[in-house]
Design a protein around this nucleic acid. Structure first.
Lengths: 209, 209
DNA sequence: TTCAAAATGACACAAACGTGTCATTGACTT
DNA sequence: AAGTCAATGACACGTTTGTGTCATTTTGAA
């Protein structure tokens, strides 16, 4: 079973050499290529993977992701870029891109990337991965925001956050509702809040768990 | 300039073959190896990169990350794991790990990973990258989550989320508390929830605003 | 061993909340 | 002109919540 590929790339030389390259490998079929997002949106057919230039003439590649995914919900999209520290990299991932390759990348790696997304993975270059990781660390739980909740309290807080009622929480934990209310009391003290919704808000925003 | 490496891995065979492998390559020096987190924390010296088993006998590898980074602020850490869909993968990245390799990975790729972190990148396997991307998409604005709230309702919801009481909201909006409660009513209907904290939870998680 | 938390449970009471029902006004659609 | 919807306001009623006070048992650290 071959992997079917579509290409949206305005640089004619790059587009054609990529097409030739993939076609020459028995593993892939290039079903179509377009040089603009508009044409791709109008005429593309379903393929397994789309290679999408991040920098198209008529539309930011980032917007094109959403439109292409809407037209072909199952398609997986790999972005093609020249600059890897482009702000658009992270944005396009947030918008649903499944992977990333640099245009200068060794053709063998591009084929590897195609195989990887086809198998459900997400090929990223190490430096793009680095950017993602940094963002993660940035909104990761700070050791500072440790409210010294006990295990039980964290358990209860999780259930509060998921919207359970006092009674439901009591049943799930096999304790009385009064005890649950006692846990609330201590949680409120530690988080310095006075209502359930404040606790929920704080817990989610500060990623307490 | 060689890349200096430290290894924390409790499996003797794997540790030694890794050491031998890296040492035999002119590019790396293995400065030390330990079979437990405790020993590593006590006796490790500064190196460029630490290869750290995620599943150590004495301490979750995840905790070890923080301690090692505290002792050697400039060190970069690559996690070693057998399972790549371990929940710990994402956690360890949140805790500051710089990269990830599977133990079964081709030794050449492990060396490539060492080079990549040394150069400031983050080597990740495609499937780990996929997990990260999914979390990102989760955090990204969903076009679907439009509950057709009116402007006023969004305004009220924002205040609910920030933890204000009914009375406070009424005062801020210069309307009666009864009206605020009426807005709640409509918000609850549209979000399909029945309590304030459920509304807060849904609003934050689905980024309604 | 003693002492401090943590976890459990209970009672009470005022305040807040969720919801049913109803009403008025202004704005926009058809 | 009629009709829908948003925004405002009110009253009532039962439920839930927040909090004060107190008690028992288990657990872990000093």
């Amino acid at each position: 079973m071959k992997i079917s590929v579509g290409i949206v790339e305005d640089n004619k030389d790059y587009r054609e050499s990529l097409t030739w390259l993939l076609a020459s490998e028995g593993e892939f079929t290039v079903d179509w290529t377009f040089d603009s997002a508009e044409l791709a949106l109008a005429h593309s057919t379903g393929v397994d993977v789309i290679l999408l230039d991040i920098n198209l003439p008529d539309m930011p590649g980032i917007e094109a992701i959403a439109h292409l995914k809407k037209k072909h919900p199952a398609v997986r999209i790999i972005m093609l870029t020249i600059l890897e520290d482009d702000v658009n990299v992270v944005k396009s991932i947030e918008n649903g891109a499944d992977g990333y390759v640099l245009k200068k990348t060794n053709p063998l790696k591009i084929m590897e990337a195609l195989r990887q997304v086809y198998e459900g993975g997400s090929p990223l270059t190490p430096s793009i991965a680095k950017q993602l990781l940094n963002i993660f660390k940035f909104n990761a739980p700070l050791p500072e925001s440790d409210y010294r909740l006990t295990l039980r309290e964290k358990e209860v807080l999780t259930l509060i956050v998921s919207g359970e009622s006092t009674e439901d929480i009591a049943n799930k934990l096999f304790i009385s509702a009064e005890t649950v209310r006692n846990h609330f009391r201590h949680i409120y003290e530690k988080l310095q809040v006075h209502t359930r919704s404040q606790a929920v808000s704080k817990a989610i925003k500060e990623r307490i768990k």
